[in-house]
Design a binder for these strands. Sequence first.
RNA 1: GGCCCUAUGGUCAAGCGGUUAAGACACCGCCCUCUCAAGGCGGAAUCAGGAGUUCGAUUCUCCUUAGGGUCACCA
Length: 485
Amino acid sequence: MVRTRFAPSPTGFMHVGNLRTALYEYLVAKSAGGRFVLRIEDTDRGRLVEGAVDVIYRTLSLAGLCHDEGPDIGGPFGPYVQSERMNLYLPYAESLVRSGHAYYCFCTKERLDSLHDGESTQDSPGYDRHCRDLPADEVRDKLASGMPYVIRQKMPLTGQTTFEDLVFGIITVPNKELEDQILIKADGFPTYNFANIIDDHLMEITHVVRGSEYLSSTPKYNLLYEAFNWEIPRYVHLPLIQGRNEDGTVSKLSKRHGSTGFDDLIAEGFLPEAIINYIALLGWCPKEDTRELFSLSELTGAFSIDGISKAPATFDYDKLEWFNAEYIHRMSREEFIVQAVPYFSGLSCVDESTHDLLTEILQPRITRFCQIPEKLSYLNGLEDFDPELFEHKKSKSSVDSARLLLGQAAESLRSITDWDADSVINALTKVSERNDVKKSAVMWAVRIAVTGMAVTPGGAVEALLLLGRDRSIERMEHSRQRISQ
RNA sequence: GGCCCUAUGGUCAAGCGGUUAAGACACCGCCCUCUCAAGGCGGAAUCAGGAGUUCGAUUCUCCUUAGGGUCACCA
């Protein structure tokens, strides 16, 4: 049974990188009929954020990544919140001390800080292993006197550690590069590095899926598994998601690259399905064909670990936008209206009777729902526009022709009894025939006159239908007068 | 800087010794057309460089270069 876990720390913010990790964890498990568990890693009490866990629940649920075990729904391996497992870690660390794989360290914060200043980190990285070989009785005394301490992992000084990653292959690191990392902090909490492997083992996680930034610390974890004589899980490291910097370079995706939080993207009008679909394809590609549109369950069916690429991928908002548009275009009329209605509220001339027409003109034209108000802003009032808008070569329209045609068009429209597409087209076509001009010249003049916008969703006819007869004619007269001096 | 990883068009990428080097986004052009979209058709654009292995390298090996990651009492 494949078991994966998503182990976010509750920061109150769900980064798309985290979300993609969750997605792949879900897919690795579900594509193999396994279980996907949620574990909250809140061992950093300094970074606790109110309500942050709810953000995680909400995001997973919106994204459709339903977990099989977790703090909210329980499961056979609980509790699923690390702070509630507090008393469980220290004994493991102490057993490591006894077996010679870890040691107490009494170094002060100040001493550690001064270490970082002395740039010459010749052989060993980070910590200088100052307390590694303290005499046993000295350790006993310090402990007895209540001196604050941390527990550090005792890394081998020679040799090398090798592990296999399912996407990156075999990786070997010299042991002397490994820092004697802290396992238990002075506040008694375990570090992520320690809690992580204890919990993964206890929760019987079979596949550890995470970003490739953890690649270089994986040997340290393996040394821990070995010290405990525990089975080492399979590793699936994911290529990083990068963002494009202003100067054209790329780096690990972060806030300065724009909206990188799931909530931000939602607020900007991206659909959860589109976001999931896009990030699934950032670093993964289906084997069978060139399809790109996948629902979550289709992804589950198509997913395989060997489709994951090693090279980092750059987040591309254009492509996300395209996915979003695809999802919008494929909606049923009913779905579209449900999503669009909230954006109709600030618009005049819109009621249920216009929903079908609005869907028709909007659905192929928006890539995000929040674009609706600006696209239809003319409904709320005719702005003073540049008369030059009447000039349009391709439509054979000009200020002069508009001046001539608008009066007649208004006149013709005024006599319509049933204000519908057919009669409007009919009336305007007659105007063009009577004056022996292209239909587009009339249409252009009318559309500009009633909307004041160079570009509108739908054409003159749709604008007229939305505005209604009275308002349309009123606007046409108004616009005609503006160009009649 | 040490260590680790990566390298096919601007971006996501297929390819896993022999291909006219797929496809998608973006871009450009044409068609359709009452504007703009949508849709259809077409175009430009990629194997970082150098050695080797091989009958033959985008594909395997090494070096160089470039980029990224990591070096916390954060996760």
